[in-house]
Amino acid sequence: MMEQENRTSFPKVWQPADLSEAWRLKHMLGDAAVYTAGTTYLRTQWEAEGAAPPGHFIDLCSTGLLAGIELKDGELLTIGALTTLASCRSSALLVNHVPVLMEAVRAIAAPSVRNLATIGGNVASTFGDALPALLVYEAQLVWYDGKLLQVEPLADWLAGLRHAAANHAAKDNRILKEIRIPIASDSDVDSGMRLEMYKKIGRREAFTPSLVSVAMTGRIHQDGLLSGFRIALGGGGAIAQRLKEVESLLQHANYTQPLLGTIYDMIVENAELQGDLFASALYKKQTAANLILSALWRAAGQAGMH
């Protein structure tokens, strides 16, 4: 009896049977409730100074619908939001089709955390280290809004977050159901050497919060021609971002040393990375630039450019 009474101060855990019920609960409870899955990131917030957990947890795992990785028609990779990072890490589909994402997942947290943490949670946290990788694959998010499923490009959602953060906009009650990644068709695959890179830099070698994370895909051709570059940054509390200006500069440019210098300056100038208690903004920007350019340099070397 005593036990019952004592537990009243614990949050109430709701286990909705489906997405619709989960959404209704959130709509009803508002800020007093939080959607949960692995709860690994949320928990670190509640243990931090001053932040108490909300009174209600809406456990999305009970909806039973949202895990698993599939390749549909050879052209669309879908990852259920409740797929754990550990499952992602052992997925042949990810290795074969989205190696940059695989590398990102490998660099997140530690085994015990990855057994609980979900890819959906990594996205929904708004600054998970998978986000730059998803950005370079032009991933789309499938949301449930209480009535319908909506498909939204990840880049648009992130742009919205940036805008919302600036305007203190109301929080999103939608539920992330799935991540979709369009897979490049075979015709693109023949020309040139593919460059795929993901790096996360933290304050130790593993199980570390990131200071900066960088993802890049592109092609480098025999004659030094560069094409199809997509580059994204994130980590360290920054909202993940594509470096579109750098990408345009690289498009159909030829690999040269001076080009690297131009890009370096461009990244250091334009990257939206903020300093924190552990590293300055400049350090993060220089690190990002160095990682991107060293990967380019390495690939150029493999292509016989130097």
């Binding site: 040393q257 001076p258 690297l260 210098g261 131009t262 890009i263 370096y264 300056d265 250091v268 590293a279 300055s280 400049l282 350090y283 220089q286 690190t287 630039a289 160095n290 350019l293 060293s294 340099w297």
Partner: peptide, 16 residues
């Protein structure tokens, strides 16, 4: 502090 050991091998200024 890593920033003390960081270099900028690709920076334009260095090239110049």
């Amino acid at each position: 502090e890593p920033h003390l050991l960081q270099e900028a091998p690709f920076a334009q200024k260095k090239e110049v």
